[in-house]
């Protein structure tokens, strides 16, 4: 009997939760704000779905309602990707050690 591919995805999902659990506990509390902004940036990888939605069909169909939702989602996700990574970078630049 063949295993449903869904089960594989579920396995990846559950294992990633465990990875996330251990990785996040090792984040130093002083970097919790950058942690939030960077998780926010990476969750915008949802743009993958937005691109598929926007490019669905042929060039003639790109202004169908489902494609338009795709384009809107691209804008939202792009704001997040650029904004999230850049603001994280800006914050991390500020963390400096004592000058000896």
């Amino acid at each position: 009997m063949e295993i449903d591919p869904f089960i594989f995805r579920l396995s990846i999902f559950i294992l990633s939760i465990f990875v996330g659990y251990y990785v996040v506990w090792s984040v130093t509390p002083s970097l919790h704000t950058p942690l939030m902004s960077v998780t926010n940036a990476i969750s915008s990888v949802i743009i993958v779905g937005a691109i598929i939605a926007a490019l669905a069909g042929s060039d003639k169909t790109i202004f169908e309602i489902s494609n338009i939702f795709g384009f809107l989602a691209i804008i939202l996700a792009a704001v997040n990707i650029f904004g999230g990574f850049l603001v994280t970078q800006r914050m991390l630049q500020m963390y400096k050690k004592k000058k000896k």
Partner: peptide, 28 residues
Amino acid sequence: AAAGIGFTLENTALIITGALVGSSGAIL
């Protein structure tokens, strides 16, 4: 939410990210 969409799109990057962000927020 991202993980839910990741399952719909059968996209590993989205599933992994969703799980990471989901557990990160829960721990915080």
